[in-house]
Amino acid sequence: MASTAEGTEEGVRRRDWIHIAAVSTAGVGGASVLFPLISQMAPTADVLAASTTDVDVSSLEPGQSIKAVFREQPLFVKRLTPEEIEEVNAIDAGGLRDPQTLEDRLGVGNEDILINLGVCTHLGCVPLGAAEGENKGEFDGYFCPCHGSHYDALGRIRKGPAPTNLEVPEFSFTTETTIRVG
């Protein structure tokens, strides 16, 4: 800055102030341009709008499952059989890797409908066991073939590398037989 050689002390200070103000304002402007550039990569309005899923469970028999899609991922909806309920109630939940009871899994006021995200909590594969004839694993629930995680009938992790139980998304009953997930 060869130009600042002359000028009184006060002049120098006034100059510095205006340059600092101008450069920082330009910096703020440049930084605010980043906002639209970054937020354009966030989910678009149509994706956000599709973030709830309605499931009709009126024709779901005990032991049957429905595979639905929730937020672009598989959703398992299963009506538990009385035997399964009995079986899982017999186990002490406290000794599990991710301790959750039947009520934790189903929510209050829900007797037998289990809603799980069909996404293994290990690395995101889709576990088997929701459809007829699929491998249900050693605990008669779900089995992830990628790295061998075994889930029980409540979708709780029992064996294998997965750290937590299958995720239960937020849901509510909009009618007696319709569930809104999300």
Partner: peptide, 20 residues
């Protein structure tokens, strides 16, 4: 915002060139 920034920029420019 641009108006504000441009005015600041103009004053800064005037100051820089004051001796020339």
């Amino acid at each position: 915002f641009l108006l504000f920034a441009t005015i600041l920029g103009f004053l800064s420019y005037k100051t820089v060139w004051a001796t020339k």
